[in-house]
Nucleic acid binder design. Structure first.
Length: 539
DNA sequence: TCGAGATCATTGTACTTAGC
DNA sequence: GCTAAGTACAATGATCTCGA
């Protein structure tokens, strides 16, 4: 197993990554590469023979320099190892960016011994071929655009290449076989051998870069089919990038190809891409779409647990695009859901759509979301908002049916507990939980500021008590500042708040601890009515 | 087809608060 | 003090756009 490219993406990062693990079918062997310190071109081999370019091939020093630069990032093959590697290839013109001259003199030379019968495979890996980068070979325009210049020799002559062809994977399609054949012939025309571009035992990067450039140059010149890159990857598990630097992927299984072909016409390209990547991912996991989804895929909203799990695992652990789930849902009308997040679907009833549009502009998104979920829940239950909320219900209303449905939704159907608050905020209702607990918070600015100004050391229980008192005052149309003189200092005993607190405790179920909470918070000395009365009598 | 960025929507969860 | 409702906010997801 060879890891190429960058590490897997971090969570939330785009799924499209050059990273992949590819089972190499070619046993790499770096021993064929000259080690550091061995002679390079222009120098002398240990046996005394000179290292030089092939006759007539021109200077190669610049090429060597570029090759060394190419290999500079290679961790396994040092740049100065390029010399001997280049020795045999003599003139990789693509490395200089110059056109490769047509060499008709070998185009029609006799074909070497190549078995006509299907080749037998002697693969190291018994596994399925790796996903492959493709040069968009499936795009009809691309495929049609490529035409060989003329009828040329299509089978390699070199024994090494013949052996290579003979050992291509069984499952490699004839078209890819053809691309490989054509590539090998192309290399031979350049005076190159496959083993020179893909030396055994080396990390793939440097060698692949050279191979990559050779292939890309061939494709650019129309000498090679654009699908050659994909064929190489499919046949050998090597990643070859197109000149754009992008690695395109395509599934291999016929069922997946058929699936891609059958995608809705209106499906966006990003969604198509996401599905494409998912299918490739499934193949990487030794899975296939038919294994995960029954033939009868079901109606809109259907869910398929195996598929869902595969998608979610792919997103979470294998770098699939987060939008993969949405793409599948959009394409096939499913309702695949994330591991931790129910699928969000907008309500479909016109009354609900209209209702969403009437929500206050300043309603926070979170509450909008809760209301959306609630309306979808209603539709799931074959209910609608107008059935629950009597016409004309306005601020201060407490529609009993709505309250019941909301509470049931929260308790039994996974609606967010904030749904009640969201509805109350949006419509001014006062629906409450079944426990009759209702969130209290003062609304007067002076009260809000007062709450903020409470001493830091004041405990949450006392804060809550004061909070309730302020809400109680607001309900009665009063405010703290109306009851408490501005100059009330520590140990003060303002009569108005004392009475208000007493009344609240006796008649409005304010906590009896409210008094002490006020005294603790503001340093007052207000007392209970009975004590105050007794004190007044004594005084 | 990919990669990245922007923006908005949605969710999970820790914390706060109220009622018992 | 306990428990559950309510709240706030960061993280994540969905979608679109644009350039390569």
């Amino acid at each position: 197993m060879v890891v190429t490219g960058d590490p897997p993406p971090a969570r939330g990062q785009p799924a499209i990554q050059p990273y992949r693990e590819v089972p190499l079918r070619i046993k790499l062997n770096c021993k064929s590469i000259r080690r550091t310190g061995s002679p390079s071109l222009g120098q002398t081999r240990p046996d005394g023979t000179a290292l030089r370019a092939a006759p007539g091939e021109g200077p190669v020093g610049e090429e060597i320099g570029q090759l060394r630069a190419l290999a500079a990032d290679d961790l396994t093959c040092r740049p100065d190892e390029i010399g001997v590697w280049l020795e045999a290839s003599a003139r990789p013109a693509y490395l200089l960016g110059t056109p490769i001259p047509d060499r008709p003199e070998i185009a029609d030379e006799p074909v070497g011994h190549v078995p006509a019968s299907p080749v037998r495979l002697n693969r190291e890996s018994s596994g399925r071929a790796a996903p492959y980068p493709s040069a968009t070979p499936r795009t009809p325009s691309t495929t049609i655009a490529w035409k060989p210049r003329r009828r040329e020799r299509t089978t390699p002559a070199s024994p090494e290449h013949i052996n290579l062809v003979n050992n291509l994977p069984d499952e490699l399609s004839s078209s890819r076989r053809s691309n490989i054949n054509r590539l090998l012939v192309y290399l031979e025309k350049q005076g190159l051998l496959w083993s020179q571009l893909v030396p055994a035992g080396c990390g793939p990067d440097a060698r692949l870069q050279v191979l990559e450039q050779a292939v890309n140059e061939g494709v650019r010149q129309n000498a090679l089919h654009p699908g050659t890159r994909a064929a190489i990857s499919r046949a050998f598990g090597l990643v070859i990038r197109g000149e754009s630097g992008q690695v395109l992927l395509a599934p291999a299984l016929q069922a997946h190809l058929d699936l891609l072909m059958a995608l809705p016409e209106g499906l966006s390209q990003p969604h198509r891409s996401a599905i494409n990547r998912l299918l490739v991912h499934l193949e990487e996991q030794e899975l296939s779409w038919p294994q995960l989804v029954p033939t009868d895929i079901g109606g809109p909203g259907s869910r398929h647990p195996a598929l869902e799990q595969a998608i979610n695992d792919g997103i979470r652990h294998h770098g699939l695009h987060p939008g993969t789930r949405a793409a599948i849902n959009r394409a096939f009308g499913l309702s695949a859901r994330g591991r931790s997040r129910p699928l969000a679907l907008p309500p479909t009833l016109q009354a609900h759509i209209d209702l969403m549009e009437t929500l206050p502009e300043d309603l926070i998104q979170q509450y909008r979301s809760y209301i959306t979920r609630f309306l979808v829940h209603l539709e799931d239950e074959r209910l609608s908002w107008p059935q629950l909320v009597p016409a004309g219900s306005g601020p201060g209303a407490r529609p009993p049916v709505l309250e019941q449905v909301v509470n049931e939704g929260i308790q039994h159907h996974g609606l967010h507990p904030g749904t009640k608050v969201a509805i109350n905020r949006a419509f001014g209702f006062i629906i409450q939980a079944t426990s009759n607990k209702v969130r209290l918070a003062p609304t007067l600015h002076s009260h809000i500021e007062l709450m903020k100004a409470l001493p830091e050391g004041l405990g949450p229980q006392r804060r809550s008590d004061i909070n309730q008192l302020l809400v109680h005052l607001e309900k009665q149309g009063r405010s703290w500042s109306q009851l408490v003189p501005a100059d009330s200092g520590p140990s003060a005993r303002p009569p108005a708040p004392e009475r208000a607190v007493d009344e609240g405790i006796r008649h409005h179920r304010l906590p009896s601890a409210t008094r002490s909470a006020i005294n603790r918070a503001f340093g007052f000395a207000i007392r209970a009515e009975s004590r105050a009365a007794r004190s007044a009598v004594r005084d």
